[in-house]
């Protein structure tokens, strides 16, 4: 299932419009007041994250959700649904915990779908980030040379090779700032996503 790890969103929407589009969705998720609305928004953001080719560890997020709900249940309020001795599961605490979990995890999925590594940051920060990514790429390429038994020596060899370096830019390893034009495709997604978020938010009753 190669498509599963392919960034399908990236084929139609460039990193910047993708982020701008996601901001509207994030606002709707942050403002969602009912578990129903929050779960619909979460489902969409999960699908978007998968379409972006991102690996989502569902087990991890399930444990996170259960923890958030569990902690919420420790402060019972509202109608008692189930009770075992001193332990009570109340509707108010359950709904509040579920809403908080759905909202926060949904926002993580949206963020994961929205952020692309090639997002160009402005100005000096952008040029510095390009340099960082260049070195990061070099380290990733050298990672198979790291030997756990002699990790310091093997890391040393790699570090001494990568830095100091005479001019990585000349070798084309460190991407130069603005060496490629900013990609603009996919701005149509901004009104689409913002409209969808607003429709779901108001249509489902916040």
């Amino acid at each position: 299932m190669r498509w599963f790890r392919t960034d399908l969103l990236g084929k139609v929407v460039a990193p910047l419009p993708r982020l701008v589009a996601a901001l509207g969705f994030l606002a709707a998720q942050a403002a969602a007041q009912s578990p129903g609305t929050a779960s619909v928004l979460l489902t969409i953001s999960l699908i978007l994250a998968l379409l972006a080719g991102k690996k989502i560890s569902l087990g991890y997020f399930l444990i996170l959700a259960l923890s958030i709900v569990g902690f919420s249940l420790l402060s019972p309020f509202g109608k008692v649904l189930v009770g075992w001795g001193p332990l009570r599961i109340t509707q108010g605490a359950l709904e509040e915990g579920a809403l908080r979990a759905l909202r926060l995890i949904g926002m993580v999925f949206t963020s994961v779908a929205a952020i692309h590594r090639d997002l160009q940051l402005p100005g000096r920060l952008g040029s510095f980030w390009a340099e960082v990514l260049g070195y990061y790429q070099r380290l990733l390429e050298a990672r198979h040379r790291i030997r756990p038994a002699r990790w310091i020596d093997s890391l040393d060899e790699i570090f001494l090779e990568v830095l100091p370096a005479d001019s990585l830019e000349e070798k084309g390893v460190v991407p130069k700032l603005n060496s490629e034009p900013v990609q603009n495709r996919g701005w149509w997604s901004v009104p689409l996503v913002w409209g969808l978020a607003a429709a779901l938010f108001f249509g489902l009753g916040q």
Binding site: M107, V108, T110, V112, A113, A114, I115, R117
Partner: peptide
């Protein structure tokens, strides 16, 4: 700052509570 922002960019959690 670069560590925080970079991790957010690479892991995709830049605009989340993470």
């Amino acid at each position: 700052a670069v560590k925080v922002l970079g991790q957010g960019l690479i892991n995709g959690t830049l605009v989340s509570y993470v």
